[in-house]
């Protein structure tokens, strides 16, 4: 019993200690950081945070991320639900072929597509633009979203939709007013899954988003770690790191049960 709890506590400490240490360091002066990694700051340096937000552009990066992730999430959910619904509830020639072609996208590592993708986006003049990233993010999130929701739409009862058709609803009307609301639990799970996946993208923006003014947060922070490190504004960098962690931490505090359920159910699909 004793060793069991010691083991559980040890892992909890290993997980939280680096995060708490980064939080503490974000309030220290550079001199204090170099002096000792352990001692708390003599007086909290809130200035680090404002410096990270403004001079180091963390605020700008967060803004870019919200636009890109918000746009691509909305697009992914709309198109993914629509595609999954059509493939799950309508018989038409080529249905199976389209479904498996879409699902195949999950089998391939992104590295395989990287070089041609760069030129596709470049030829469309979309390198380093918000809409370029939004479209690419949505395209890569589509296979899993369709796969997940396809099963969900299949399992919904058909009687309600039929009743709506008899009442004179259009195809689009049945989808938006009847079927989509019934699929809400599935939409929430896959939405959480996609949100985190898109928020955490690193490889795609690294290749497709070379414009520093449009950097997303993961990319911007990594770039700062190189450049600030050279200028040795460590305290500002710690503050930037903590600011980048805070939004997901807050979301987790409020929605922790849904987030864990959403992510693990996605894995088992």
């Amino acid at each position: 019993m004793r060793t069991k709890h010691a083991f559980l506590t040890l892992w909890a400490v290993l997980v939280t200690l680096p995060l708490l240490w980064a939080l503490m360091s974000s309030f220290k002066t550079d001199a204090e950081i170099f002096d000792s990694p352990w001692t708390p700051p003599a007086s909290p340096q809130f200035d680090n945070w404002s410096r990270a937000w403004e001079q180091a552009s963390i605020g700008q990066y967060l803004f870019n991320t919200v636009i890109v992730v918000g746009g691509s999430l909305a697009l992914t959910m709309l198109l993914g639900a629509l595609t999954a619904y059509c493939l799950a509830r309508y018989e038409f020639p080529g249905n199976r072929f389209l479904y498996y072609t879409l699902i195949a996208g999950m089998l391939f590592p992104v590295f395989l597509a990287l070089v041609p993708l760069f030129f596709v986006v470049d030829n469309l003049g979309m390198l380093g633009t918000y809409h370029g990233l939004i479209l690419v993010y949505a395209a890569y999130a589509l296979p899993f979203t369709v796969f997940f929701l396809h099963g969900f739409f299949r399992s919904l009862p058909g009687a309600v939709a039929e009743a709506a058709f008899i009442d004179g609803a259009s195809h689009a009307g049945v989808f938006f007013r009847v079927m989509l609301p019934m699929a809400r639990p599935g939409m929430v799970s896959v939405g959480i899954f996609n949100f985190l996946g898109l928020w955490n993208q690193y490889l795609l923006p690294r290749v497709l988003n070379p414009d520093p003014d449009h950097y997303v947060i993961s990319q911007g922070l990594a770039a700062l770690a190189v450049s600030q490190g050279a200028r040795s504004d460590w305290s500002g960098l710690f503050a930037g790191l903590v600011i980048a962690i805070l939004p997901v931490l807050l979301a987790y505090v409020f929605f922790q049960r849904q987030i864990r359920a959403g992510l693990t159910s996605g894995a088992l699909k």
């Binding site: 038409f92 993708l117 259009s170 689009a172």
Partner: peptide, 30 residues
């Protein structure tokens, strides 16, 4: 109701174009 194929075409054209342009075609080109 009729109009099934019009609905399907309208619903699928955008996602399939996106997928074809940014996912499928790069994989094949590679």
């Amino acid at each position: 109701r009729h109009g099934k194929y019009r609905f399907l075409a309208g619903a699928l054209i955008v996602p399939l174009t996106l997928y074809g342009a940014f996912v499928l075609s790069p994989y094949l080109q590679a």
